[in-house]
Amino acid sequence: MKDIGFSHLDWNLLRSFVTIAQSSSITDAAQRLCLTQPAVSGSLKRLEEQVGYRLIERSSTMFELTEAGRALLGEALEITATVSRLPASLGEAEKVLSGDATIVLASHVESPDFDAALATFHQRHPQVRLTLQVEASREGLAMVAAKRADMGVCVVGDSNNMQLDYTLLFQEHFGLYCGPTHPLFGREGLSVSDLEGFSSVGYLAESSNRALHELTALRQRCGLNPDLVGRSHNLEEIKRMVIAGFGIGPLPVHVVERDCAAGRLWRLPPYESTPQAGVYFVTQPAPLRSRIAEELHRIFTEQVETRPPEDRVYGRSVL
């Protein structure tokens, strides 16, 4: 890369570039930065003029870093890491961990490992004020990438994004369910063909989250009506609509076991080869983590490593 005179480089442009590089489009970056699309495009153009290289190839069908863009991103991430370490270097970091932390998580995460890690974190660091914020997984990942959250617990379809650190928390299987007023409720010996033509509800993220694509395929496999009568990002609201009789809906098997036992839900076929999704805890890469994020990552990693991955698979076929 050319000598671009770092003493004259606009650091705000560099910080914006990191977010742009971690986004899927200028529009996506503008949303993360809370700026207009022209403002983000303008900042990228000014940075490219300063460094003397085109950093991102962009068109209506393409948005990817150039070789120079990848090189600059690596440098920018190192600079960000250095800045994040300044308080410790200047002796401002205290021995006792305190402050505010945010974990953003998908709705109704049910995991003994999550609960145990959370308890351990609080026991070790009672002075940290923790916020648990429920968001769609896509938004959760964006918040972690933009450092608006210290950790995410998200349903992830592609964990190969090297700009974030992914660790599998658990794997959950989905089943199809209906509520007490549905014609199939309480009926034994049903087959997949018995579901054909019935209305269904589903998740707003099915089209954008690879981990949930299998739910759409399951709906097609069973011949359910493809026009959803209800949708939500929130698992609890999907369950609410199923119980209310809107239609058949996919729910994590281990999450709704108590509802089935209480007569609020009825499990429908298929019972084998059911869709599954991985739930991961996600942080910034190690060099970029805050002290609190690093401690969250360490405690959660210690917890999941107490059990092998096969013991963290929930809702596998039992019928």
Score class of each variant (00 low, 15 high):
Lys2Gln: 15
Asp3Asn: 13
Asp3Gln: 09
Ile4Ser: 09
Ile4Leu: 09
Ser23Ile: 06
Ser25Ala: 08
Ser25Pro: 06
Ser41Ile: 14
Gly42Ile: 07
Gln50Asp: 12
Tyr53Cys: 15
Met62Thr: 15
Met62Lys: 14
Phe63Pro: 00
Ala68Gln: 02
Ala68Thr: 05
Arg70Trp: 10
Ala76Cys: 11
Glu78Cys: 08
Glu78Lys: 02
Ile79Gly: 13
Ala93Pro: 06
Ala93Asp: 13
Asp100Lys: 12
Ala101Lys: 01
Thr102Ser: 14
Ile103Val: 13
Leu105Ala: 13
Ala106Gly: 09
Ser107His: 13
Pro112Phe: 00
Ala116Cys: 07
Ala119Cys: 10
Gln123Lys: 14
Thr131Ser: 10
Glu135Phe: 11
Arg138His: 14
Arg148Asp: 15
Ala149Val: 12
Met151Gln: 08
Gly152Glu: 03
Gly157Arg: 07
Gly157Met: 04
Asn160His: 15
Met162Gln: 15
Tyr166His: 01
Leu168Arg: 00
Gly175Met: 04
Leu176Thr: 13
Leu184Arg: 02
Leu184Ser: 07
Gly186Val: 04
Leu190Ser: 10
Val192Gly: 06
Glu196Trp: 04
Glu196Gln: 09
Phe198Asn: 05
His213Trp: 05
Glu214Trp: 02
Leu218Ser: 09
Cys222Met: 03
Leu224Lys: 00
Val229Tyr: 13
Leu235Asn: 09
Glu236Leu: 12
Met241Ser: 03
Val242Asn: 00
Asp259Pro: 04
Cys260Ala: 07
Ala262Ser: 14
Gly263Cys: 04
Arg264Trp: 13
Trp266Thr: 04
Arg267Ala: 08
Leu268Asn: 08
Pro270Gln: 03
Ser273Trp: 02
Val279Lys: 05
Arg289Leu: 11
Ile292Ala: 08
Gly315Ser: 14
Gly315Leu: 12
